[in-house]
Design a binder for these strands. Structure first.
Lengths: 106, 106
DNA sequence: ACCTATCATCGACGATTATCGATTAAGGGG
DNA sequence: CCCCTTAATCGATAATCGTCGATGATAGGT
């Protein structure tokens, strides 16, 4: 795999994080990652082509939300731990809001 | 004031809320509103012109984050209560993340 | 060496965004 | 009535975004 870049933790900023989370496809990706384990691209079942998925991964990576670990021909993606350090409870609140109960609460 | 429209609570959706919050200027507006009181546009000190501020207000309104109450020649803006009903703790987590301590936690 | 799999990058495209200045709408106040 | 204030809307513009198909990079397998 080509090497990917991750921003240093100190330059993760809230607006960019929220902006990155403000997309249904990226929200779905984060939801899958919320089991705390590593996933590869085929794990995310989203209605876009491979290159677009890769673009969304880069967006999440650039925002400091996910960490990509290339290994061999695959790329393992997981939630980035520094996010919780920096914005405690934020991701949890977002994930709670994605659950069906939130939709019913109309 | 011209009349403004608010989306019904049941069609407030998470991605749009996060997307609306994913902008430094709108984040600042929400921060000011977090005192729970009503505010008028001049209360928000942001580095944009009046028409742009009005545009950001509309974005927040369309996302279901703020409520605008026209009265006479002014327009009183406040956080929309339904947001907390629908996504409990979300706004609180975001606001906590805007505090300086979050930046230090690099 | 060659083929295959996985994923990043490129070039293109239409759609959306953030911005401005100017205008319009609506409501006071003299 | 005629101004003044507040804020929404309009038209324009440059920049960014989300998408695609095609190509490139890297590693494994045979």
């Amino acid at each position: 795999m080509r090497r990917v870049v991750h921003p240093p933790a100190e330059q993760i900023n809230l607006a960019e994080v929220l902006s990155a989370l403000g997309d249904p496809i990226r929200l779905e990706i984060v939801k899958v990652l919320s089991d705390g384990r590593e996933h590869v691209q085929p794990d995310f079942v989203v209605p876009v082509g491979q290159s677009t998925l890769s673009y969304h991964m880069k967006t999440l990576r650039d925002a400091g939300i996910v960490f990509s670990r290339p290994e061999g021909t695959r790329c393992f993606v997981s939630l980035r731990a520094e996010l919780e350090q920096k914005f405690p409870g934020l991701l949890a609140a977002v994930l709670r809001s994605t659950r069906p109960s939130a939709a019913e609460r109309a």
